[in-house]
Write a protein that binds this DNA or RNA. Structure first.
Length: 216
DNA sequence: TACCAGGAGAAAA
DNA sequence: TTTTCTCATGGT
């Protein structure tokens, strides 16, 4: 990808939406829990689930593991896929504690830490990269469905390009900059939410001046 | 009413 | 190995 165009997209998005202050959480562990719960789910639904969970137990791996499955699933109900996510969250907490918690994981170099996270049940590429960037501050670019949609429409990528290829392309174009990646991904999500998907030629799109189709 | 949301894993082909 | 199916609530 052309680094200048990738930068230009960022500048347009930042000018339109301003700083997003991601990730909305009080601790690194809460970021990781939120990353599992937000899989294919609107954040507003995740917030309710996090609140319900925090009303019942302290937001710690040990406390989550002490909850029976039915109780955990019930607390997560509003986030959707609650049975699946209850299992994934328990597996994640197991792996988290086995790895020595936040301290143990933080001691790992980024490639090793990424492999460690990906080895946990329920943690796929995007979730692992959410954790790496927003919980550990590592310079890893998060690719999601919005990223594909926006950049494919801009003609900068093929929609079907694999996750790792896209991640590497963004990281190569921008250089290792965790603060930039943090803001960029948040802005892409903000833009994706704001756009009306029923109007692909949206005249109000902040990217229309750099989009061959007139909007992204 | 139908569609989508800050995906991942299992099952089927 | 690649594609398809399943998981589910809440907002628009």
């Amino acid at each position: 990808m052309d680094p200048e165009r990738v930068r230009a997209v960022y500048e347009h998005l930042f000018a339109a939406y301003g700083p997003q202050h991601w990730w909305p959480a009080d601790s690194a562990f809460e970021v990781m829990v939120g990353a599992v719960l937000t899989q294919n789910t609107a954040w507003t639904n995740v917030e309710r689930a996090l609140q319900r969970l925090a009303e019942r137990i302290p937001l710690r791996a040990e406390s989550i593991l002490e909850l029976p499955h039915a109780e955990l699933a019930d607390a997560l109900r509003s986030a959707g896929y609650f049975n699946v996510k209850a299992r994934r969250l328990r597996s994640f907490c197991d792996g988290y504690l086995e790895a020595g918690g936040l301290e143990g994981l933080s001691a790992l170099a980024t490639p090793h830490l990424r492999r460690q996270l990906l080895g946990m049940h329920g943690v796929g590429p995007e979730t692992a990269d959410d954790m790496l960037l927003y919980a550990f501050g590592r310079p890893v670019f998060v690719v999601d469905a919005y990223t594909r949609r926006v950049f494919a429409r801009l003609g900068l990528i093929e929609h079907e390009t694999g996750y790792e290829t896209l991640r590497a392309a963004f990281e190569d174009a921008l250089g290792p900059d965790a603060d930039l990646f943090n803001e960029y991904h948040a802005l892409i999500v903000r833009h994706g939410k704001a756009r009306c998907r029923k109007r692909p030629d949206c005249p109000g799109c902040c990217l229309r001046s750099i989009c061959p189709a007139g909007g992204a």
